[in-house]
Write a protein that binds this DNA or RNA. Structure first.
Length: 718
RNA sequence: GGGCGAUUAGCUCAGCUGGUUAGAGCGUUCGCCUCACACGCGAAAGGUCACAGGUUCGAAUCCUGUAUCGCCCACCA
């Protein structure tokens, strides 16, 4: 027996050595795996943002993915787990800009586009190296030879090609539409990048000619010259659509036009409203329907424009009180109420989001296109569909299964309310919009030949490239061997909070580009919280760093503590005590191995006694149950069952009852018991390997000195 | 306003398609350095499964309603 078993298990000394042995073996790469492997199993790693370090959420994701990969590798599949990092456009640029502002007191315009991009590039390189190291620490058996970055050359080529094809198909268009404008970040943002904050504000009832209108935003009302009511509202039946009314307003007399539209809620306020199409989505849509004028009131910095007269140049917040003051003196304020409502703020910058009409690039989710190839259920080859229909069908038809399944309701709800997706951003870091202009001419895709072409200044929403992740990583647009072999992928594993941001967009992109779903299964994990149920945050200082923990207790212990008791789609509490508990378990396993090795050295396999055969059958039954749990994504249950068997059956009962047998005189019974104990140990090592890969591999190499690495051993159940 | 989820031992949570005395980990109490392991061993206490109805031979498990908590979505001017 190896001397190392005489000391407690030391993960810090073991884990890096084992990981190096795996990397050297080449088995992370499906092309190097031994034996015939016709069936593939693929997971694309959700690329962590290249902004910083891994947190517990990443550690959880990596653990689940690695468990699935290791299990399927042992089951004889050609497993590909492709790692990468995300350039995370807005997040990364704002982080680097903040750092530069802090240390050098310079903003992006002081540096210029090229210098800022150079700085971000350097920052990202460093971050990526850190992240790669941390992914290794967790034991992730991913194929580093295929590693990708969402903003590298190959991915840029894919993004440009995808943009071009969607443009040609009429799905990407440029237009003046209302978008979410972040005055602080000076860029458009998507609906999903908005965080709503409840604010207590005043709600004003203002006299507007013969009407009373309600508003929380008097500062937008300068240009309001349309007064809208529901066509069926009996209170306003006397007024007709298009009727002109002269009235006194903030800065003098105006002529208002009556508009009848069903978007007005008769129950709310007075049932009458004026509209500000430039700065409100509903108003914009009403204006579009009735072909009304639209006028900008607030500029890109959040200040009032000349239309505001004496208030021009003021910030909206300071203008509001003054405008109300003026309306009061004119006798136009009927009453005020306190009112709590949700204010849109930008997730990254905290800026107050102001809807604006801007010339931007969009993906039209309701535009029909002809789908030349489709493997998506309910979508016929050659049929005319919209992206929205396609996205719905992918899940409704069972092409994509979501675990836990109740999340499909949330998915449908989101799909059904989806609007056109604004994909252009006014930031510098990211894939630049692949469009060139020369006078009235426009070129899309690769840079055109010839003089005088100017490329679009904007970059693409980071989710545009993320959406292509499952196939841009496999060489698309070239139809490579990898693409044919590994796409659609098997599982996409990520947090439920990212269902819409990312999952839906991957389904969109993959459906359009390949006529395939991007993955057959989605496994959603919950948010990792602290022992009190709070989210980890820097300000609370309650974070548990996965790398610290892995160093202190071992990655195996960290992995087990993240898996046991953790059901999909549900938030999960983690404490350091729990991790410690699984460190103890690792040591228990270590001592089980020691005992069995000490007592079975040099034993030749013999026929088993009837009693020992029962023990062998018992562990086979466990293996079957564990396999069933694995197939149903119940990793939490599989892990607990193996844990329980190992400690409370193998150690507490079987080893104890073996002691007298092993010191006894009946040689046949003794060798049978020695044989079966070795078998049980090997079985446990295999079953446990996906969960605790390091210690199981380490022990395996002391038991099976002549055999292959445990990482490619075959799973006990076929 | 709409939707989703949760409510089981002191704490954190399992309990898959309803079936014998409801489970685990941690914690607690008591006794043990027993030649695999004190990162351990042996024992013990602890639950009217949120509440009220219903279906059933039988419900923590299915149905209806109520309460409390949490999350997501939404253009209510």
């Amino acid at each position: 027996m190896d001397e190392k078993f005489k000391k407690p298990y030391d993960p810090a000394a073991t884990e890096p050595r084992i990981y190096a042995a795996w990397e050297k073996s080449g088995y992370f790469n499906p092309d190097n795996l031994p034996g015939e492997r016709s069936e593939t199993y693929t997971i694309m790693m959700p690329p962590p943002n290249a902004t910083g370090v891994l947190h517990m959420g990443h550690a959880l994701g990596l653990t689940i993915e690695d468990i699935l990969i290791r299990y399927n590798r042992m089951r004889g599949k050609a497993t590909l787990w492709l790692p990468g990092t995300d350039h995370a456009a807005i997040a990364t640029q704002s982080k680097v800009e903040k750092d530069i502002q802090k240390t050098e007191k310079k903003n992006r315009h002081d540096l210029g586009r090229n210098e800022l991009l150079r700085r971000i590039g350097a920052f990202v390189e460093e971050s990526r190296a850190t992240i790669q190291g941390q992914v290794r620490v967790m034991g992730a058996s991913c194929d580093w030879s295929r590693e990708a970055f969402t903003l590298d050359t190959a991915r840029n080529h894919a993004v440009n090609e995808l943009f071009k094809r969607m443009y040609t198909a009429g799905l990407i268009y440029r237009g003046h539409r209302i978008v979410n404008w972040d005055p602080k970040g000076q860029t458009t943002i998507s609906d999903d990048e908005i965080v709503y904050e409840e604010r207590k504000e005043k709600f004003y009832y203002l006299k507007y000619g013969p009407f009373t209108i309600g508003t929380a935003r008097p500062e937008t009302k300068f240009g309001d010259k349309y007064v809208v009511m529901h066509p069926k509202d009996p209170r306003y039946a006397a007024y007709t659509d298009g009727q002109k009314i002269d009235l006194e307003w903030i800065n003098g007399p105006i002529t208002a036009t009556v508009i009848k539209d069903e978007a007005v809620d008769m129950e709310f306020g007075t049932g009458v409203m004026t509209i500000t199409p430039w700065h409100d989505v509903t108003d914009f849509e009403i204006a579009e329907r009735h072909n009304l004028d639209k006028e900008q009131i607030i500029d890109e910095r959040g200040k009032l424009l000349p239309v505001a007269g004496e208030f021009a140049g003021m910030k909206i917040t300071e203008a509001r009180e003054k405008i109300i003051e003026k309306l009061r003196t004119k006798g136009l304020v009927e009453k005020e109420e306190d009112y709590a409502h949700n204010v849109a703020t930008a997730e990254r910058t905290g800026g107050l989001v102001e809807p604006q009409i801007k010339l931007q690039w969009f993906i039209g989710v309701n535009r029909p296109f002809k789908i030349d190839h489709s493997e998506i259920p309910r979508i016929e080859i050659g049929s005319t569909v919209t992206l929205k229909e396609m996205m719905r069908a992918a899940v409704a038809g069972g092409g994509v299964r979501i675990v836990p399944d109740h999340f499909d309701k949330t998915y449908f709800h989101w799909i059904d309310n989806l609007r056109d997706w604004c994909i252009s951003r006014q930031i510098w870091y990211g894939h630049r919009v692949p469009v060139w202009y020369r006078g009235e001419e426009i070129a899309v895709g690769d840079a055109p030949i010839g003089e005088g072409w100017v490329q679009d200044e904007d970059t693409l929403d980071t989710w545009f490239s993320s959406g292509a992740w499952t196939f841009s990583t496999l060489g698309w647009p070239d139809i490579t061997g990898d693409l044919r072999r590994f796409h659609p992928t098997n599982v996409l594993e990520t947090g439920y909070d990212i269902l819409f941001f990312w999952i839906a967009r991957m389904i969109l992109m993959s459906g359009f580009a390949l006529g395939q779903v991007p993955f057959r299964n989605v496994y959603l994990h919950g948010i990792v919280r602290d022992a009190q149920g709070r989210k980890f945050s820097k300000s609370l200082g309650n974070g548990i760093d996965p790398i610290d923990v892995a160093q202190k207790y071992g990655a195996d212990a960290a992995r087990m503590s993240l898996i046991v008791g953790n059901t999909p789609g549900t938030d999960f509490r983690l404490s350091e005590d729990k991790i410690k508990g699984y460190k103890h378990f690792a040591n228990k396993l270590w001592n089980i191995a020691r005992f069995i090795l000490e007592n079975t050295e040099g034993v030749k396999q013999t026929a088993l006694t009837e009693a020992d055969q029962v023990l062998k059958d018992e562990v086979s039954l466990l293996a079957k149950e564990v396999t069933r749990d694995m197939e149903e994504y119940r990793m939490y249950m599989a892990a607990e069952k193996i844990y329980h068997y190992t400690w409370h059956r193998l150690a507490d009962v079987l080893i104890e009852e073996s002691k007298p047998i092993l010191t006894g005189t009946d040689e046949a019974v003794k060798t049978s018991r020695q044989t079966v104990l070795r078998m049980l140990l090997l079985e446990v090592l295999k079953l446990l390997h996906p969960f605790m890969p390091f210690i199981t591999e380490e022990i395996w190499q002391s038991v099976q000195t002549d055999k292959e690495l445990l990482i490619v051993a075959s799973w006990p159940v076929k």
